[in-house]
């Protein structure tokens, strides 16, 4: 009687390992090792080519803290998040509510609004670069119809980050919309009708019933939004190159510049480590907060 139980236990240990091995192996080679290596590199000075790497202690970090560009990139990374996330959540939620209340035509709208999400980012970046052209681009031509003299979007320090953020919003809100649509579909219709029989107005139903029920989705969106906005590389690389005067530089792009344009691998690695620390901090705080506010 004892033997099969032991065998079962052993199976329960070995089998999961068996199924996990491909993933774990790949993670070990292409994630854990590079990740630890990045930490090591952040304490060294290296140009990627010379055979020797010199240990410099915390110098790379000290240089960064003293680097004007780094602080700009840091500020822009956070600003970009603040510019894109509230607007795309509002757009996504608003459109989802609007569409779900329709009697017909949902599929068509859903198709349209989700199209930017599936479009190749490199293509999008080029198309928008041309749209932002100062005098003849379509963005300013359209603004002109409303009597607004648009800025020189990509060349002006005060508008370049917004220009990129608008593309980010355009590319992303469809994703949020779809998540909310699926959330709304799963809300119990009975609950909804009961509330309206109780005489709750639309607004109150929204605030007191729908939004709380959607809060896990909102949390998910916020976390995913943070992650993807921290990874915003292609748009910056293709549209602005971080310029003018670093007004649209962000941490991931500065990291790329340090590594592949200025050949300071150590400094690039130090940015990686800081980026990692920030993401860790934000997500931890997020999850802590969410425990008390999200309604399941």
């Amino acid at each position: 009687m004892k033997k099969p139980i032991l065998g079962y236990r052993r199976k329960m240990l070995l089998l999961p390992l068996f199924f996990l091995i491909p993933a774990l192996l790949l993670y070990a080679v292409f994630f854990v090792y590079p990740f630890l290596f990045t930490f090591l590199l952040s304490f060294q000075q290296w140009d990627m080519i010379s055979p020797e790497r010199t240990f410099v202690g915390l110098e790379n970090y000290a240089v960064l803290l003293d680097d004007e560009v780094f602080w700009k990139s840091m500020r822009n990374t956070l600003l970009y998040l603040l510019m894109t996330m509230p607007i795309s959540i509002a757009l996504g939620l608003g459109l989802a509510l609007l569409m779900e209340s329709l009697m017909r035509g949902r599929v068509v709208y859903r198709f349209l609004f989700y199209l930017p999400v599936v479009s190749p980012i490199a293509v999008i970046a080029i198309v928008w670069s041309l749209m932002y052209d100062d005098q003849r681009g379509i963005v300013n031509s359209l603004l002109m119809l409303f009597g607004i003299d648009g800025p020189n979007w990509l060349s002006d320090t005060s508008s370049s980050l917004w220009a990129v953020a608008i593309v980010g919003i355009w590319k992303g809100f469809g994703y949020e919309m779809l998540l909310y649509v699926s959330g709304l579909k799963s809300i119990d219709k009975g609950l909804y009708e009961a509330a309206s029989i109780d005489g709750a107005g639309r607004w109150r139903r929204l605030v007191h019933i729908i939004l709380p029920l959607l809060s896990p989705i909102t949390l998910f969106i916020v976390i995913m939004g943070i992650i993807s906005s921290f990874q915003n590389f292609a748009l910056i690389k293709i549209m602005t190159g971080g310029g003018p005067n670093n007004s649209s530089n962000v941490l991931v792009y500065q990291l790329y510049q340090e590594a592949f344009q200025f050949f300071s691998i150590g400094k690039a690695a130090a940015i990686s480590v800081i980026l990692f620390a920030i993401i860790l901090l934000i997500t931890t705080v997020q999850l802590r907060l969410s425990r008390s506010t999200v309604h399941y």
Binding site: D133, N152, S155, G243
Partner: peptide
């Protein structure tokens, strides 16, 4: 105007 390399030609 403030134009970048490619834009000046255009």
């Amino acid at each position: 105007p403030l134009l970048q390399l490619q834009q000046t030609f255009e």
